[in-house]
Simulated assay, not measured.
Amino acid sequence: MANGRVRRNLVSDGNHANCTNDNLEGSSGQNMSEDDMDKRIREISSELESSNRKCEVYRANLLSVLKDIEDHKMQLSIKVQNIKISMKDGL
């Protein structure tokens, strides 16, 4: 049982087990066929791959922004140190 639904494994031809869900129903109220379930699995897998690629791009962009922030922080720190030194020399 997962998410309140009962799952059972069916072995079709001995090569692989197909996981079906007693609560999987199409919009017409009929149970989905194995072909429909396989098609839906392929669609969801494709969506997952696309989401993973987007996530990689977002991660790269985020790391780039964080590096830029770190560089800017270092530059500001150097400027502050130079100002401190200038103020000490002026006294």
Rank of each mutant, 00 (worst) to 15 (best):
L62M: 09
E34Q: 09
D38R: 10
E47N: 08
G14L: 02
A2C: 07
K73G: 03
L91R: 15
N23A: 11
N23V: 05
S33K: 04
G90Y: 15
K73F: 14
D38T: 15
V65G: 08
L48F: 07
M37P: 00
D68A: 13
E70Q: 12
K79D: 00
N3E: 12
G14K: 02
L24W: 03
G29I: 01
A2Y: 04
V11Q: 06
N3R: 08
R53T: 14
G26I: 02
L62S: 08
R40A: 13
C19H: 04
R42F: 14
N21R: 10
A60S: 06
N52L: 15
I83Q: 04
I83E: 02
V65C: 12
N31L: 11
N82K: 09
N3A: 13
T20S: 06
D35P: 00
V11Y: 04
C19M: 09
E47F: 11
I85F: 11
S33Y: 02
S46P: 00
K79E: 00
K79C: 00
N18A: 13
R42C: 10
A17P: 00
N3K: 08
M37G: 04
S45V: 03
V11P: 01
R59W: 05
I85V: 10
R8W: 10
C55F: 15
V65I: 14
D35K: 07
I85P: 01
L48E: 02
S77K: 12
K54E: 15
C19L: 11
N82R: 07
S45R: 06
N18C: 11
E34N: 14
N9H: 03
R40N: 08
A60T: 02
R5Y: 08
C19D: 07
K39E: 09
E49Y: 08
D22S: 09
L10D: 10
S27I: 10
D22T: 12
A2G: 09
L48Q: 08
M87D: 13
D13Y: 03
M74C: 05
A17T: 07
R53K: 14
K54V: 15
L91W: 15
K54N: 15
M37R: 07
I83K: 03
E47G: 08
I69L: 12
E43T: 14
K54H: 15
K54Q: 15
S46G: 11
M1S: 15
C19T: 12
N3S: 11
E25Q: 11
V6M: 09
K54Y: 12
C55D: 04
E25L: 10
K88T: 01
N15A: 05
V6R: 07
M37H: 05
S86W: 06
L76M: 12
K84P: 00
K54G: 10
I69C: 06
